[in-house]
Design a protein around this nucleic acid. Sequence first.
DNA 1: CGTGTGATGTTATCTCATAACACATGCGCC
DNA 2: GGCGCATGTGTTATGAGATAACATCACACG
Lengths: 163, 163
Amino acid sequence: MGHACDHDHDTTALDAVSVRQRISEAEARCQADGERLTAPRRRVLELLIEAGEPMKAYDLIARFGEDGQAAKPPTVYRALEFLERRGLAHRIASISAYVACAEPGSDGDPLHAAAFLICDCCGATQEVTGEQALSLTRAAAAAGYVISHTTIEAHGRCPACPA
Amino acid sequence: MGHACDHDHDTTALDAVSVRQRISEAEARCQADGERLTAPRRRVLELLIEAGEPMKAYDLIARFGEDGQAAKPPTVYRALEFLERRGLAHRIASISAYVACAEPGSDGDPLHAAAFLICDCCGATQEVTGEQALSLTRAAAAAGYVISHTTIEAHGRCPACPA
DNA sequence: CGTGTGATGTTATCTCATAACACATGCGCC
DNA sequence: GGCGCATGTGTTATGAGATAACATCACACG
Ligand SMILES: [Zn+2]
Ligand SMILES: [Zn+2]
Ligand SMILES: [Zn+2]
Ligand SMILES: [Zn+2]
């Protein structure tokens, strides 16, 4: 997801070796948990890691085939669902995009609480985890962001609901 | 947005008098700021307040006409955009829904930071504001919620961006 | 092997949201 | 009052995001 503004930005692309390393780590993690990082899942994760920034689902669909062939939407959406379930990727609802997790499983919990700092101008997106995610405003200020809008949503079960 | 579960829940519908009162307050606030709470905007706000829970855009569209006639999508989306700009309603990105603000302008800032506790079972949605919004996890625990997933997103401008 | 579970391929469809343009309404100004 | 501009509305059409449904395939397990 490129920049909307007209000035230049530093790009923080990952080199091919690092990409493969992170995929290997994901592979190992899945195997350890008895899950299968199958070809389409691996491919979508690869695209997300290579991008190093949030990607739209239909951009993933368009780039899915190594040869330039597009995938069918369910292929990619199912892979994204898996990756999110395993804590390997995150969906960013406010921009309808998906991003590889910055530190998968770093805090033990695969589905960790994650917060994102998203620049509306250049699209630069930064994941903050752990304690920092709990005090988003402080983290944002520390990172030099000027926040125009925050979305904070918690999903779960209310006291009135079973189990 | 009704409940997905099969058991009963308390309903917290607002009576007609309270609805009109909250609309009047919104009207007054708009006039004070030199903004116009026009007919379609008023109608959408009315539907949101009456519902007392998040509503899907196309549900608003379907119920827009007093006589049962549907509106055209842009009519409702434009009204929602206005209401959100004025801090009279919020968009909840993770469920693609809209809800009337619980305390518009209570903290001086029209576009206040808001957090929502959303029950995936019954759809009950609770807005928490101010300090509480900054420590969502604590607030959720205090409210008796069991959190399965949180979305925390901050939009703004990163240090590398102009103005 | 045979069986069951989970993953994939494929088609079609659904929901959500906006672009674009013509028309109307309100308001300040000459 | 009549003009000119800014803002809001009505309407048509289309774009973008996501999923339902079902047939087929791959694989672990016994
Ligand atoms: Zn993460
Ligand atoms: Zn930026
Ligand atoms: Zn609010
Ligand atoms: Zn509930």
